[in-house]
Simulated scan of single mutants.
Amino acid sequence: MSGSGTPGSWLTRTPTLPGPGRIAAYLGLLLLGAVVGTAGSLVQAAWPPGGLLLALLAAAGLFYGSLRAVGTQAAVVAPAVGWLVTVVLLSTGRPEGDALFGAGIGPIAFMLGGVVAAVMCATMARPAQPGGGTGRPDR
């Protein structure tokens, strides 16, 4: 049974690949996540504590905005991966001892807060489709 209204039908249908437009959107969001991660890494240490709040709001805004713009949870994963990889790479020090992140609670709060924001946005309910009902098959 592969009807669209039957429970579990997503398990039995053939998986479809995203189109080239959606792939381009995911790649753009990945790069935008890297940019926001870099900017947030610089801002959170420059203006404590307001910089930390600004950096976390920018990351959360990017994650939620990508969910609303594309409409899939995968659209949150793309900028989150770009953000996380950038922040982790910038947090590692060089062999000479230089590091972008300083000591203290700020960098830890930035990393954990960004990850929490990404998880919250990725697990949110998808936005309702225009003209759609409740999405439940019994109503």
Rank of each mutant, 00 (worst) to 15 (best):
P18W: 01
S91V: 00
L84A: 13
G40W: 11
G97K: 04
I108D: 02
A69R: 11
L89V: 13
M124A: 07
T16I: 03
G106A: 15
P127D: 13
L11Y: 03
R139V: 05
F63I: 00
G71C: 12
A78L: 12
A60N: 12
M1T: 05
V76T: 07
A75Q: 10
T38I: 00
P79W: 11
A118M: 13
V81G: 08
A24F: 05
V115E: 01
V119K: 04
T6H: 06
A34C: 11
G50V: 14
G37K: 10
G102Y: 07
S91G: 14
P7I: 10
P18Y: 09
D138G: 03
W83R: 11
V119Q: 13
A99M: 06
V36F: 03
L42F: 09
P130M: 12
D138Q: 11
P48I: 15
L62S: 09
G37W: 14
G3E: 08
V36Y: 02
F110M: 02
R139D: 05
P127M: 06
G71V: 10
P95V: 09
Q73D: 14
T38S: 13
V87T: 15
R94K: 11
Q73K: 06
V81H: 08
V35P: 10
P20F: 01
T12I: 05
L84H: 04
D98I: 03
G93Y: 02
G50H: 10
G131Q: 07
V36D: 08
L27E: 09
Y64L: 15
R22G: 00
S91E: 09
V116D: 09
R68C: 04
P130Y: 06
L84F: 13
G37S: 11
T123S: 13
A24T: 03
A125Q: 15
G50I: 07
P127H: 08
T92Y: 04
L57F: 12
G40M: 08
A58G: 07
S91Q: 10
V35H: 08
L112S: 05
R94F: 05
F101A: 04
T12V: 12
T6G: 14
V77D: 01
V70D: 09
P49A: 10
T72Y: 15
G135Q: 10
A118V: 12
G3N: 14
Y26F: 14
L89H: 10
L52A: 02
C121K: 01
P49N: 07
A58T: 01
